[in-house]
Simulated assay, not measured.
Amino acid sequence: MTTAVEVTGLTKRYRSLTAVGDVTFRIREHAITGLLGRNGAGKTTLMRLITGQEFATRGEIRLFGEPPVENARVLSRTCFISESQRYPDDFRVKHVLASAPRFFAQWDADFADELVTAFRLNRRQLVKKLSRGQRSAVGVIVGLASRAPLTIFDEPYLGLDAVARQIFYDRLLADYSEHPRTVIISTHLIDEIAHLLEYAVVIDDGRIAIDSPVESLTAAAATIAGTAESVERFVAGRTVVHRARLGGLLSATLDGVTDADRAAARDAGLEVGPVSLQELIVRRTSGDANTPDSAAAGAAPETTEVTR
């Protein structure tokens, strides 16, 4: 595995607030990775640290084997598109596109023009007069057409309607397949981008909660449903991350499920269903995740009572 981003023991404090606390992870080169987590979890701070816009309190960051802070060689290979991107007041869309080649050596002007048409932007319009969705589209265009070896999108879809978001996803996948590079997407619309992601890094309260290939993450989870008594008997001793009750019925979301577990559940007359990436991450970062369902655990996993 070739590493594009390597973070070791990284901490960022703002006075008494620890925004990022002793995190360690790697981002694989030539892969699309989701940096996921709740609002305020530390995602944006982490991205600003990675791109050299913030100084770490402690720890080490390496992009392509080198520290990013005040390193023009590394930063010239990086494109960071933030939802709070700002441009000079007199900049029009055409000025953004004209200035981009100065920053990105692999800039594709023809691809940028295609995207302008796809997103229905007016090249002559002032950026400050654009709607929030149109400004997001400008950022998406720059991020995609930059073809930077490391491209980071921080909540790139804000204000985009469903059609525009789908254009972004489709164009990203198509261009990535022809021009592989390392892409990091930070978002809370997990279900929408799950099909794009090869890896997921989940940050929760400033710490890494999950760092895993998406396929193995979702393959190891399942929902077991049936009568409450039967489900409780089956899940005893297993890792239950969520329960939902409806009368005498119970649905339990399990982690660490094997094919043998699934077969055993079916043999016991229980229904076995998949768990989406979003549901799994929500359950694992809700405060009651990863709770072994045993008396020794001393706590119960999250339970939802469903009423009719």
Rank of each mutant, 00 (worst) to 15 (best):
M1L: 08
T2A: 14
T3D: 00
V5C: 12
E6W: 01
T8R: 06
G9L: 07
T11M: 08
K12W: 08
L17S: 03
A19S: 11
F25C: 08
I27P: 02
R28D: 04
I32S: 03
I32D: 00
T33F: 12
L35W: 03
L36F: 05
L36N: 00
G37T: 03
R38S: 14
N39K: 05
G40N: 06
G40E: 01
A41L: 09
T44G: 13
T45P: 15
Q53H: 06
Q53S: 05
T57R: 05
R58K: 11
G65I: 04
E66I: 05
E66L: 10
E66G: 14
P68I: 06
P68G: 10
V74G: 13
R77S: 14
F80M: 08
F80E: 01
S84W: 02
R86S: 08
R86V: 15
Y87M: 05
P88W: 05
D90R: 15
A98P: 12
A100F: 09
P101W: 03
F103G: 10
Q106M: 11
Q106H: 13
D108C: 12
D108Q: 06
D110A: 15
F111N: 00
D113P: 11
V116H: 00
T117S: 09
R123I: 05
Q125D: 02
V127Q: 01
V127H: 11
K128Q: 02
S131Y: 13
R132N: 01
G133V: 12
S136W: 03
S136L: 07
V142E: 04
S146G: 15
E155F: 12
L158F: 11
V163K: 01
A164R: 06
R165K: 13
Y169H: 06
Y169A: 07
D170M: 12
D175Q: 09
D175V: 09
E178A: 12
I184S: 00
I185F: 02
H188C: 04
I190K: 02
D191E: 06
E192R: 02
I193Y: 00
A194Y: 09
H195V: 15
L196P: 15
V202M: 04
D204T: 12
D205S: 11
G206F: 13
R207C: 13
S212T: 05
S212A: 07
P213L: 05
V214D: 00
E215P: 12
A220S: 13
T223I: 10
I224T: 04
G226W: 08
T227N: 08
E229C: 11
S230P: 14
S230H: 14
S230G: 15
E232R: 15
E232K: 10
V235M: 07
R238P: 08
R238C: 04
T239G: 06
V241Y: 13
V241W: 11
H242S: 13
R243F: 14
A244L: 08
L246D: 00
L250R: 01
L254K: 01
D261T: 03
D261L: 14
R262E: 01
A265C: 03
A265R: 03
R266D: 09
R266P: 15
V275Y: 00
L277D: 00
I281Y: 07
R284Y: 07
R284T: 00
T285I: 11
A296K: 02
A296H: 05
A297M: 02
G298M: 06
A299N: 04
E302M: 09
T304N: 01
T307F: 09
